[in-house]
Design a protein around this nucleic acid. Sequence first.
DNA 1: CTGAAAGCGCTTACAG
DNA 2: CTGAAAGCGCTTACAG
Lengths: 346, 346
Amino acid sequence: MIDVARLAGVDVSLVSRVINEDPKLNILPTTRERILEAIRESGYRRNFQARGLRRQRAFTIGFLLPEVTNPIYGPIVSGAVSRADARGYLVVLGSTAGHNVAEPSFEDLLGEKRVDGLLIASGELSDARMRELRLEAAPIVFVNRRIPGTVGSVTVDDAAGSALATQALVDLGHRRLAHLAGATDIDTAARRREGFVSAVTGAGLTDWVIEVAGDDAQGGFDAASRLIDQAPTTTGIIAMNSLVATGAVRALGLHGLRVPDDVSVVSVNDHPLAEFITPTLSCVRMPLERMGATSVDSLLARIDGGAAEDTMVTGDMTLCLRESAGPPPAAQRSSRPRRRTARIPG
Amino acid sequence: MIDVARLAGVDVSLVSRVINEDPKLNILPTTRERILEAIRESGYRRNFQARGLRRQRAFTIGFLLPEVTNPIYGPIVSGAVSRADARGYLVVLGSTAGHNVAEPSFEDLLGEKRVDGLLIASGELSDARMRELRLEAAPIVFVNRRIPGTVGSVTVDDAAGSALATQALVDLGHRRLAHLAGATDIDTAARRREGFVSAVTGAGLTDWVIEVAGDDAQGGFDAASRLIDQAPTTTGIIAMNSLVATGAVRALGLHGLRVPDDVSVVSVNDHPLAEFITPTLSCVRMPLERMGATSVDSLLARIDGGAAEDTMVTGDMTLCLRESAGPPPAAQRSSRPRRRTARIPG
DNA sequence: CTGAAAGCGCTTACAG
DNA sequence: CTGAAAGCGCTTACAG
């Protein structure tokens, strides 16, 4: 910068002001031009650390998530990264998986001023556990998650998404629906469960909920196996996410139940392979990428001194009916007889 | 830090040396204890930006990848993040997808000293395109990718992995094998192709290669459809990755070919859903997480002034034979007749 | 064994 | 309209 100043024959402070487009700067067009020219000529790049030190900002935010393997994080992260970039911020990745061992801990990141704030998208830590971290004061925004008792989150309308999926099966004629649900102590899972229950009871039907242990394919597989045992007459399943849905379809198949002939399955959230597995997986798509972007906006507002807020990103909710969903067996018995008729009551 | 020094009754320079465990520091145990105590009492956290500015290090590296949706990046990224953390570095995420538009560009990240080096894991940019970026000088390491003409990469033994998958089908009795391959101008894809070709010709068979446009499920679907047209007698397919494999299985099914009864499919690299889709997907697992960790080591060595190196992470290569692979139809004709017999020659 | 001082590369009130 | 100067919070040769 000193070089640039010398090249342009001005003081470094002027160079700085030109670079930062200081609004209260009233500079001679010719001087500005000389400075811009000098910057070009010297190939000058401003040093972000120096800038950050002076401005007391890291211009970096942290994104903490359990694992990158769950496909739901793909759109959220890419939405966040591109919005952050547009606003001059970098996104560093952290894992909440082993956050008590090697991984950069919440406190370190914030305490050492390596990041200005944190985005936390963890579906694994319980609400209580999260609240323990007494995060009120720190600039933290939960993504796809709300922690009762704290403020500062960006979510989508999970209840509506779940209800939309449920209603689709009701409309197809299903009367015995079950939900493979996440733990009740995780707000997002609870809202999906709510959406299911209200849609089912709204249709005058009885709800049936099986809790999934570990919200992945194995969890879905196990939960569906239990469901087949406990509620064998079920003809429609709403899975809390696409991994659980896929595991459930597999379990149904191994138990001799065909999807969708015997049982229909709809997932909350899509999966990159949904259109390529057999049967193709039906789902409700929620605005995940936009949620990621909005969470950055919310966090930066917080960093800039704004009050914590709970935002729900709405709109863009679409139902994708694919092979895994169809009319219940009763409605189609004439054409496609159900294999395990013993399990059909009435 | 000034507070800490005052609390302990020493100079800030001593505090700094204690914190950084300066080896040439010979301090009185009592003084050290007083300083440590003062740090604890004051809740002091060192400021990374100031430290970085002084040391001319960002203690941050960038990880550029095309999309987070491809499951192969999961283990690579998490391996990299945890190793980086162990070495005191943060990992910022960048996308190579739209690296000419909004995303933080290579040059900016490095030029503004926001990162000390870059890890690039892009399967989409061609070798030529990458070389254009004249990266020789900059501390950059390519992950899962080698750019002919440049040095600085960490890869796994793709040829061996691909050969292992191929040999598995040969051993099962397959004689007509095809490879759904990535573009030849991408080194990793070329090495997988090589492994396939050498295994096939080594067994005295003829190789058949179909190039996949876009290494995702849709690409696999399209490529398999062309394969069915062009080489209908094929009984075994080695897919360049798990997404392509899944797309291929789908295409085969829609063309009336059963997997594995009519055609077997093995994927290079696993997928989180591989054991839950039907048929479950056979694959070769490569040490991706370790590759991610090693790439960090390699990059940090480079940052510390070491010469660029090409490293291949070996070992940990396992074959997972699941439902999608079995003996070819000829070998099992007696028990399970092939549906489209017209397509079987001889 | 410990301290004083310079300096990393910026930004920003304050002068003039 | 432009410049001089202080300071962000550290680290590190250099003294003593």
